[in-house]
Design a protein around this nucleic acid. Sequence first.
DNA 1: TGCTGATATCCATGCACGTCAATATTGACG
DNA 2: CGTCAATATTGACGTGCATGGATATCAGCA
Lengths: 131, 131
Amino acid sequence: MNMLKVLDCCSPLAREPLGEDQAAGLARTFKALGDPVRLRIVSIVASHQGGEACVCDLTASFDLAQPTISHHLKVLKDVGLLTSERRASWVYYRVVPERLAELSALLAAPAVVDDGATDGAVDGAAVEVDG
Amino acid sequence: MNMLKVLDCCSPLAREPLGEDQAAGLARTFKALGDPVRLRIVSIVASHQGGEACVCDLTASFDLAQPTISHHLKVLKDVGLLTSERRASWVYYRVVPERLAELSALLAAPAVVDDGATDGAVDGAAVEVDG
DNA sequence: TGCTGATATCCATGCACGTCAATATTGACG
DNA sequence: CGTCAATATTGACGTGCATGGATATCAGCA
């Protein structure tokens, strides 16, 4: 059971209320993930051989028109969840691990607040990562 | 075989492509977080004294009408991110840590796919927190 | 019972967004 | 150059959603 200290640098949700601007930025990212097609796109790209997938791989995975896939890819790219690289005629997309890790850390271990006698023992929250 | 084992139990995004139904369910939750107001609500509730906040605390924190706050609370409750409990005239909301942890695990350490080279150099999960 | 404050529901409005057809752009190959 | 395949952009359409006003429900209190 190794513990990960999460709260030292980044600000998980429970640390303090998000500012309006932070919330706005994060909400944009979560909204990008708030579509089944985009979520599957991220998943497909992340799990694809070599950590990247071309648009043709994606259009083949959905029953959607090509412009629709392209639109979703743009949304994911705009919020920094994906990057693209053109090689020959094909464009390859890959996820940005740092962005996902950022979101993961934000949601991690939301203060298992033991209300009451928590005399300052709250800090140093930890995510328990498997054992 | 795989170089970075992140979570043996849960299924990170990079493990395998999400099914349509899983994606649909998760997307609903992410969509709920994909609004600045709702994100701040979750944050305020999570960081509030005792891990709970009543609606009056929230309406006071926003420049929005009370029905709007109530609507957002319902959305967050419907996806299981919040629970509510009525005490006297007030209704208190609190976050559901398991739900946040679930999302956190899903996004955690999405395979820093270093194809080939580093053979098992990285043990355990590695959400890079801070530097 | 009636009154007041706290919260939820209903309804309407305006805007954001997912989707696709048509078209444009880009690169490879003659 | 022209043609073809892969991808992106544009424009339009229909639906979904955030917001707030009016109103209903609920709990405490006189």
